[in-house]
Amino acid sequence: MQIIKDKAIVDDDWPVIRELESSDPIPEGKAILPLAYWQANRDQLLKNNSEHAVWIDGSVETGELLDDLDHFSIIALDFPAFKDGRSYSHARLLRERYGYKGELRAIGDVLRDQLFFMQRCGINSYVIREDKDINDALNGLNDFTIRYQAAADDAVPIYKLR
């Protein structure tokens, strides 16, 4: 599968496991797990000593992840619909307040015209919806050259440049 990561189209082999009961066996190989599954099977997963990834939805309190951030290669943020903007706040909190340095990945209803905003909130990889052209979506990262406000990227409030 191809995704956009760090402004380029790359191959990726991290599947998102959308549904998994806490009592289900640990999936083989790479997998982006539901947060609840990670929480229920944390000790076992850590023993496996492999790379870990979880996905969260908009209703999660990002502070819950605080003690585990160093374990994750990827935190995927779910956008169940284009208009659901909760994960933009999650992304900024994870980057700016909790200092998460790993990959932040947008999953779900992810389309070209959100990418500029997502990037500014600290999301650096994007699983573009299957029916859309990923090459076209890549253009969405460059819609604007000027940013008025500071966010999780390197922008400062614009007046500081004036």
């Binding site: 933009y88 500029f116 990037q119 604007f144």
Partner: peptide, 14 residues
């Protein structure tokens, strides 16, 4: 106005 224009976190509010 300037702060709120294309605010990346608040463009998809409830």
């Amino acid at each position: 106005r300037q702060w709120s224009t294309f605010h990346p976190e608040f463009s998809f509010l409830p």
